[in-house]
Amino acid sequence: MVHARRGGIGRYYDVNGWLFVAPALGLIALFMIYPIVWSLWMSFQSGRGMMMKFAGFANIVRLWNDPVFIKALTNTMTYFVVQVPIMILLALVLASLLNNPRLVGRGLIRTAIFLPCVTSLVAYSVLFKGMFALDGIVNSTLEAIGIISSPIPWLTHPFWAKVLVIIAITWRWTGYNMIFYLAALQNIDRSIYEVARIDGVPAWARFTHITIPLLKPVILFTTVISTIGTLQLFDEVYNLTEGKGGPSNATLTLSLYIYNLTFRYMPSFGYAATVSYVIVILVAMLAFLQFFLARERDR
């Protein structure tokens, strides 16, 4: 062993170990750890642009009295509470239907449902903006079928704008989640389903009593991923609403508000950093809560 000098094999291993991991750890420290600590410090500062001074908890007080922040927080939580369950349930149903090997054309259908994942968030938002225009294809189709009698103001009504954001995100990410469930379902022994079927367990009961419990770890994982994603929502809302989060802040998200505070209005770095820490805390809390709930139900 040429390399092993006085430190012996342990030392030799250690130097090599550090050399291999150093570039990644260095970059993560510089561009993740250092900024996140800095923005914590910044959240206790106030001032315009680069002229900042210590402000204690002034920014946190400002949060409570800022109706735009409250609006952005409510909107973000609405997206999270409404969209994530719908999408996960839809993905689960699709995965269990497509898991049936006798389904004709399931490879093609799977590819089709997964296809939205290849688009960039900007590209699909732009497409959706056009499709959901007032006299666009979606309204005219719904009118032709007879579901609605007058066009829905998707982009200009506070309620429908939120619905549009939820439809758009669901379109983009359902296939992505479905792929996780399909992969997990392949590890489940088919004979469980056969036995349940012969015993006369109806399809819906098989879904709720076999599929969901067995997929719980994957469901938890995808829920955490979707939570983190939803709380950071930016690209879609920015591109559906020309960067405004409109109409009248009805679709504004926390990330978009931080962007506006920093780069659109007079830069207010300290306060924007405080808002960003609201996301940090929400992500941490919700991830913890989801793990906790999953463990509780195990008992």
Binding site: F31, P35, T262, A273, S276, V280, V283
Partner: peptide, 15 residues
Amino acid sequence: TLMIPFAALMIPLFI
């Protein structure tokens, strides 16, 4: 660090 949202990094990174 996987849980760190980008929104919390963008201001320091920009500076």
